[in-house]
Simulated assay, not measured.
Amino acid sequence: MRAARPPARRPPRGWTGAVGLVARLVLGGVLLAAGWLKVTDVTSSVQSVVAYELFSYEVSRIVGTMLPVVEIAVGLLLITGLLTRASAVVGAALMIVFIAGIASAWARGLSIDCGCFGTGGPIDPEDTRYLSEILRDLGLLALAGWLVVRPRTPFSLDQLLLKGR
C-alpha cells in the first residue's frame, strides 16, 4: 500500500499572495535595474565602492565588479520566483550591507552619491540624500523579510516546479 501524498502546495490567495507577488517583483526589479546600470559601466561601479573609503582599492575593485552580477542574478531569481526564499535572504543581506555603508558614509561626513543605480562618488554636501536612501533600502529590506517568511507567491517558478510536492 502506498503512502498518501500530502496535498499540493498552492500559492497564497488574497492579500497575502498579492503582497508576496508585489514584494518579489519590486525587490527583484530594483536589484535587476541597479545591477544592470552598474554592469554596463564597471569602472563607475568600482569608483562608487572606492568612494565609501571602507576597503583597499583591490577589494573595492572586486566588490565593484562582482556586486552588479550578484544584483542581476538575485533580481532575475526574484522576478521569476525561482529559489525565492534563498534569493530573498541574499537580497536582505544586500540591503543590510547597503544601509550600513550609507550610514557609515553619513556618520563619517563623506559627501558621496550612494552609487546604487550607476555612477556614484563624491558630490556636493547639499546634494547628499542619505536619509531617503536608507529609508528606501529599509523598505526593500522589509519586502525581502516578507519573502523570507512567506516565499510561496503566485506566478512563481517555485510553484510550477514544486507542483504536486
Score class of each variant (00 low, 15 high):
R2I: 10
R2M: 13
A3D: 05
P6A: 05
A8T: 08
T16Y: 06
A18T: 05
G20V: 06
G20W: 06
R24Y: 14
R24C: 14
G28Q: 11
A34N: 10
L37Q: 06
K38W: 00
V39Y: 06
D41S: 15
D41E: 13
V42P: 15
V50A: 02
V50Q: 00
A51Q: 10
E53P: 00
Y57W: 06
S60K: 00
R61A: 13
I62G: 13
T65D: 04
L67Y: 01
V70Q: 04
A73I: 11
G81M: 04
G81F: 00
L82V: 14
T84K: 11
T84E: 01
A88I: 15
G91I: 03
V97F: 11
F98W: 03
I99R: 02
I112M: 08
F117N: 02
F117Y: 07
F117W: 08
G118M: 10
G121I: 12
G121C: 13
P122M: 04
D124T: 07
E126P: 15
D127N: 13
D127W: 03
Y130S: 04
Y130A: 04
S132L: 15
E133W: 01
I134M: 12
L135T: 05
L135C: 04
L143V: 12
A144H: 06
V149P: 15
V149E: 12
R150P: 07
T153G: 03
Q159R: 08
L160N: 08
R165M: 05
